[in-house]
Structures are given as structure tokens and as C-alpha cells.
Design a protein around this nucleic acid. Structure first.
Length: 662
RNA sequence: GGGCGAGUAGCUCAAUUGGAUAGAGCACCGGCCUUCUAAGCCGGGGGUUUCGGGUUCAAGCCCCGACUCGCCUACCA
């Protein structure tokens, strides 16, 4: 409702400005005033025009208000006034607004583009940790938001199965543990029967291997490093025992990652793997294009002599001068860097490479299949790639390489694609020193004085995702057991899981993207105040009202549509808090649009929380079931119905379920 | 050295991207369960938005300078 009225008012002011002052303005700033006493929408446009029109803001505002209040006014608005030194405040027709909010919803703002979102992308050599959770939850929430806005979205999870990280655990299996391919296969089967997690196993082995590289004498360490790179090259080449071990391990760990994410209701459509990017020669195709377009050039001198390099974004280089700072894409030994492979992959994403993956089914969800890349795939498969817009959910530390890929696309003349390439960047999740100590890690004196400590998979330092989820469920289960004595075991467990996931997802979403999360169990395990459970609790309370009243939100809203004299409940001093709740609910599409254009799910999370807050306030102030005036009771029920609807919807966009009870 | 981000209440974070009286949660103090569930509600204290200049009708936000912190910046991947 709000968004529609905002657009309508903007249009109207624009046309008045064109007519009256012959001014063409792109955007009319319209905002929601800090207090309802200033109306429901306002604009400071008069201040902006004061200089241009050489008139006092107040005069301009008065003229605009006169034009707006004209013979027919503006549909949906009750009036306009000048306030302060020149604000124009608009007041809504509350009755019409309420009916609009209770009835049909706004048309979501879809761009109609085919969008590809990539998130999670955990190296398949260890368990997922809290940092990966932030990535996946941000990405999944953004996908839900895009889909809610009517967008067609493919979800990808990129798997670097031939990188040095996987090589390191393979070194661990083969050389630290002395396991053969057969042994590894047996180990996987044993873990399976014992119900143990292979990703947890690898977590420790990876940390041990990383240490091992530095533990020996100088000669030993050199030999170990050599072993590391020999292993890496075997992986890249493929078709040998070492690469088979890697394939086994990385696939098993990947499955575990998908299972972990499924606990949070996070699903994927396609898993492109680096092994196919290598074996299907994506890079070779990209290399030709990069040379042809002059994005890459061969360096004949300086420290990068013998390499194919690329000018960095924003670098000012005069032609012919030596650019020592250039980014190396192909090393002097002929091997390609990670950025090079990434450029090839992104050309594929936009359908510009002229090559495609093979596809085979990999993981089955209740309502769809997740596919994985392979060299020779199935004949019949869905289409991936060839997107018009992409979002890469990758932490802020990778903004440099991401900028390089965009720069390459731009340099190749794919400017539209470069413009629709969004690095959905976010800050890392770190641990508070207290949390690190709590987990039993050795924390240096220096680290103890810092506000947070970066997690490190290499050191095995961090909080594993499954451990955190387990811990959350234990905590919520204790609460549910105490409160829901009448419910059976399975039901209580189900509710506990819903609340635990709600707490976790909200926790990861309530921070804006560029704030570092200093993780602490105390905060993450909190279910009070600004948390997911707080919002879920508001939903449960609203549902209880309808259950006890023996009616449904839909029935109430149908009755409300016919109700006369709604104005008496919406106008006046006493009605302000109720009207504020209706207005908050009416902001849904506005918030969705804002969250999408800014790539900031935190806005939506905040919105859901504020809505819950206002509902709780309303809940305490107005006792519905004991209301004696039937018309007022219908109105109050309708208020609860609207709040309930909006809360459930907003939560679903955040990937948070609304429990039946808690 | 260069690039990016950050510095706001005791703590953790917001602030509709330049708008009206800088807001939430936690913590602390005080009230409210015979009511539609207290995972809740109400009230209270707590701020020179790191510092110094500038731009303008208007600055937490933009510009300049200083200070502090984090990340990135290899022919490793």
C-alpha cells in the first residue's frame, strides 16, 4: 500500500513541477516522517527548489500544497500541509489505506531479468563454520527476497574441489595417516555406520596437516611443501589415485555441507566445480578472448617478465610504460591464476564463453533436484548459466579479485554484464576473545586485548556450524519442554528446531553487511529482545487469539471489508498506535524493494522486528477477546490479522518458520 | 606505501543514503502474570556521534586534515 501511494504522490508532484515551474525532476525525495504527527509521507523538496526558484522554501511549499489539494486532490490522500520551514506533509485517507492493506497486496517490483545468485562456496575439505553460515544465510535470504519480488533466480554453490585446501587434506590422508584409496573408502564407510561426520574428521586433519608443513626441520618442511604442490598438480590433472582420493573426500564433505545447510532450509540448484572448469578447458576459451580484446598482454620486462598480465581497476598507466603493479593472470611457467579461472567461469555465467558444463543430478530435495557439474553429463538437464544479472555472495576480503573479474568483463566490451555483476560483499564473522577461551583455544596476550579474532580453517580455529545448531536446539528444546508439557516428543523437537533456526538466521541477518560480527555464544543463544524467537513469539500470540476466538484471519478480513465506520477506530489520539501498526504492515513492498536495491537483507530483518514490537505493544494495550462492541472487536481482530499475515510473510522471506506454538 | 571498510549510550548494533527531538537490544534500577502464553509489556538513568576545520536552509552521513582499529595489497591457490 505504502509504496504505491509513495509512487503516486511522487508522480503528482513531478507533474505539478513540470506544469507550474517548467521543471523536470528525476526523483522526488519522499520519506516517512519520524513521527505520525507529521503525517504519513513527507518531502523536503521545497528546500531543494528554493535556490533554483529564488523563493523561500515556505512559499514554494505553500504553492505545491495548494496545487495538490486542488479540486480532486490525490486519490488515497486526505490532505497536505506545510510544516516547519518548508516540509510538505501528506496525510493519508486512513480508512481507504486500511482496506487496501487488508485486501490485495501491491504488485512486487520485478526487473524481469534472469538472475543468478552464488553463495556458500565452502572449500570441501573441512566442516562449515559460523563464517560460512553468514554467507549462506545472507545468500539464501536474498534469493528468497528476489523470488518474492517475482524474479527468476538460479542458486549456485561453487565448489573448489581441486584447490590447495583439498590438496592439504589429501596430503593428510595419504601421508600423515598413510591411507590408500581403498583405506579412505573404508574410512568413509566406517564413519557412515558410526554416524560420525566426515567434515568434522577433516576439520582436525586439515589443521594437523597445516601444522605439519611447519613442524619439521628446514629440509623436511621444504620436502613437505613439495609434496603439497605435487599433490595439488595431481588433483588438477585428474585420472590418478590421488585425484580419486580427493574426489571421494571432497564429494563426501560437500554432501555434508548440503545437509548442514538443509537444516537451515537452504537449498541449491547447481554446483559448478573447478575440476570441470579445468578439464573442459574453460580457461583456454577465455584466454583466446582475453588476448583478442587486449585485456591481457604479455609482459617483456620487470618483475612480471614472461607473464600474461592485466591492468588493475582504477590504475592509471600510460601506454608503453612498465606497469609493475599489473595483476598476473598467467604465470611465467604457463599456469593460470585463480582470477584467470574466475574470469572464464564468469564468462560462462553470462553465456559469453561458448562452452558449457556437463550435468548430472547430485542431491535430491523434497521438491527439486540439485545438479552438479561433470565432464560428460546427462543428455537431458536444466539450463544453467547465461544469466542477465549475477550476485556473488563473497566476503569483503575478496573484493580485490572480484573487482579484477569485473574489470576484465568491462575490458572485453561486456559493459552491460559488468554493470549487472554485483559483488554481494559482507564482513567476516570473528570470535570474541572470551568465546575463543571458552572453546579451549590458546589465545595470545595480544589477541586477548582485541575486540575480535579472525577464525581460521587452517588452524582449526572456529565454531563449527553443526555444533552451533546442535547447541541452539538443545537450548530451545529445554525451553519448549518446560512450556509445552501437553505436546509429544516429535512435536516439541520440531518446535525447538524451528525456534533454533529462527534465532540463528535472525542473528546472522540483523547486522548490516559491512559490520564484522564478533561471535559470542551468549549473544547467539539469546532468545529475548531483538531476536528471531521474539518475532516468532508475536506470531504465536496472534495465532492464539484466532484459535481462542474460533475464527481465522481470512474470515475476519472478509468481515472487515464490509465493516462500516472504521474511521472512528483509526482517527484520533487514542488510535495512533494502532494506525502505526497498520502502516508498518503496509510498508512491506517498500522495504522489500529497498532491501533488494541495496542488497541489504538487514533492512527486512529490522522491519520484521519492528512489526513484532508494535504488535506486542498492541497486544498488551487492547484485549481483543473481551471486547464487547462487536464492530470494534472485528476491527481489532482485523488489526491482528494484518499483523499476523505480514509477520509470517516477512519471516518466510527471512527463511524463518512461524511455529504453531512455543 | 597504496586500496577498501570502520570509529555512535557501559556492551553489541541501527539511523529510510543530506532531513524534523540520533534510535533498538543487552546490561542496570523500578513496576506489571486469576486476563488472548511474562521467549512479553510499561517506566527510569545513560550521547560533545574519535578529534579539528569546511561545504549549506539542514551534517552521525559529504569535503579537507589528524588519530585509532580491521581487512586487502604475492608469478601460493
Amino acid at each position: 500500500m505504502y509504496l504505491e501511494l509513495q509512487k503516486r504522490l511522487g508522480e503528482r508532484i513531478r507533474s505539478i513541477l513540470a506544469e507550474k515551474y517548467n521543471l523536470q525532476l528525476e526523483n522526488i525525495p519522499l520519506e516517512i516522517p519520524p513521527d505520525l504527527k507529521f503525517g504519513e509521507l513527507s518531502t523536503p523538496i521545497a528546500f531543494e527548489l528554493a535556490r533554483k526558484l529564488r523563493k523561500a522554501p515556505k512559499i514554494i511549499a505553500q504553492e505545491l500544497v495548494a496545487a495538490l489539494t486542488g479540486p480532486d486532490g490525490v486519490p488515497g490522500f486526505a490532505g497536505f500541509e506545510v510544516a516547519g520551514a518548508g516540509y510538505i506533509n501528506a496525510r493519508l485517507d486512513r480508512v481507504a489505506g486500511a482496506h487496501r492493506t487488508a485486501g490485495a497486496s501491491d504488485v512486487p517490483p520485478a526487473s524481469g531479468l534472469h538472475v543468478l545468485v552464488e553463495h556458500t562456496s565452502i572449500n570441501p575439505n573441512k566442516a562449515a563454520h559460523v563464517g560460512h553460515l553468514r554467507n549462506a544465510i545472507l545468500g539464501d535470504t536474498f534469493v528468497r527476497m528476489l523470488r518474492a519480488a517475482g524474479q527468476k533466480v538460479d542458486v549456485q554453490n561453487y565448489i573448489d574441489n581441486t584447490g590447495v585446501q583439498v590438496a592439504d587434506v589429501v596430503v593428510g590422508f595419504q601421508h600423515l595417516e598413510g591411507l590408500s584409496l581403498k583405506d579412505v573408502r573404508q574410512l568413509l564407510a566406517d564413519l557412515q555406520t558410526k554416524g560420525q561426520r566426515i567434515d568434522f574428521y577433516c576439520w582436525d586433519l586439515y589443521a594437523r596437516t597445516s601444522q605439519w608443513y611447519e613442524q619439521g626441520s628446514e629440509e623436511e618442511n621444504a620436502a613437505r611443501k613439495k609434496l603439497r604442490y605435487a599433490t595439488l598438480h595431481e588433483l588438477e590433472r585428474g585420472g590418478n589415485e590421488t585425484s580419486e582420493v580427493a574426489e571421494l573426500i571432497s564429494t563426501a564433505v560437500l554432501r555434508r555441507h548440503l545437509e548442514t545447510m538443509l537444516r537451515l532450509d537452504i537449498e541449491y540448484d547447481f554446483l559448478p566445480r573447478e575440476s570441470e572448469i579445468l578439464h573442459l578447458k574453460f580457461w583456454e576459451a577465455a584466454f583466446e578472448q582475453l588476448k583478442k580484446t587486449g585485456v591481457l598482454y604479455f609482459e617483456n620486462e620487470g618483475k612480471n617478465k614472461g607473464c600474461w598480465v592485466m591492468t588493475r581497476p582504477g590504475a592509471e598507466v600510460t601506454a608503453g610504460d612498465l606497469d609493475e603493479d599489473a595483476k598476473v593472470i598467467v604465470r611465467s611457467n604457463g599456469t593460470v591464476t585463480y582470477v584467470g579461472k574466475d574470469i572464464a567461469y564468469h564468462l560462462w555465467k553470462f553465456g559469453l564463453l561458448g562452452k558449457d558444463f556437463g550435468y548430472k543430478p547430485f542431491f535430491t530435495y523434497p521438491d527439486h533436484e540439485c545438479w552438479i557439474s561433470t565432464e560428460h553429463g546427462e543428455e537431458k538437464h536444466p539450463q544453467f548459466g547465461g544469466a542477465q544479472a549475477i550476485y556473488n555472495v563473497i566476503d569483503a576480503r575478496q573484493s580485490d579479485p572480484q573487482a579484477n573479474v569485473i574489470q576484465a568483463l568491462r575490458g572485453m566490451g561486456h559493459t552491460d554484464q559488468a554493470d549487472r555483476y554485483t559483488h554481494f560483499s559482507y564482513e567476516m564473522v570473528a570470535l570474541t576473545p572470551r568465546c575463543a577461551v571458552e572453546l579451549g583455544y590458546n589465545v595470545s596476550e595480544e589477541d586477548l586485548s582485541r575486540p575480535y579474532i579472525e577464525v581460521s580453517g587452517r588452524k582449526g580455529f572456529g565454531v563449527k556450524a553443526d555444533d552451533l545448531i546442535d547447541k541452539l536446539i538443545v537450548a530451545t528444546r529445554a525451553e519448549v519442554d518446560a512450556r509445552q508439557t501437553g505436546r509429544d516428543e516429535t512435536e516439541r523437537q520440531r518446535i525447538a528446531e524451528q525456534i533454533a533456526i529462527g534465532a540463528l538466521r535472525y542473528f546472522m541477518l540483523k547486522f548490516t553487511r559491512n559490520s564484522v560480527i564478533a561471535f559470542d555464544f551468549k549473544d547467539a543463544l539469546s532468545f529475548e529482545g531483538e531476536t528471531g524467537p521474539y518475532i516468532q513469539y508475536a506470531v504465536v500470540r496472534a495465532r492464539n487469539i484466532f484459535r481462542k476466538a474460533g475464527t481465522t484471519p481470512d474470515a475476519v478480513l472478509a468481515e472487515f471489508a464490509k465493516l462500516e465506520g472504521v474511521g472512528t477506530y483509526l482517527e484520533g489520539e487514542a488510535a495512533e498506535d494502532i494506525w502505526a501498526l497498520w502502516l508498518r504492515a503496509a510498508r512491506r513492498t517498500m522495504v522489500l524493494e529497498q532491501s533488494i536495491t541495496t542488497s541489504e537483507p538487514a533492512y527486512l530483518a529490522k522491519h520484521a522486528f519492528q512489526l513484532a514490537q508494535e504488535f506486542n505493544n498492541f497486544y498488551h494495550r487492547h484485549h481483543i477477546l473481551t471486547e464487547e462492541d462487536p464492530a470494534k472487536k472485528t476491527f481489532l481482530l482485523a488489526t491482528a490479522a494484518v499483523a499476523l499475515q505480514e509477520l509470517v510473510l516477512a519471516l518466510s522471506w527471512l527463511g524463518i518458520e512461524s511455529p504453531e506454538a512455543m
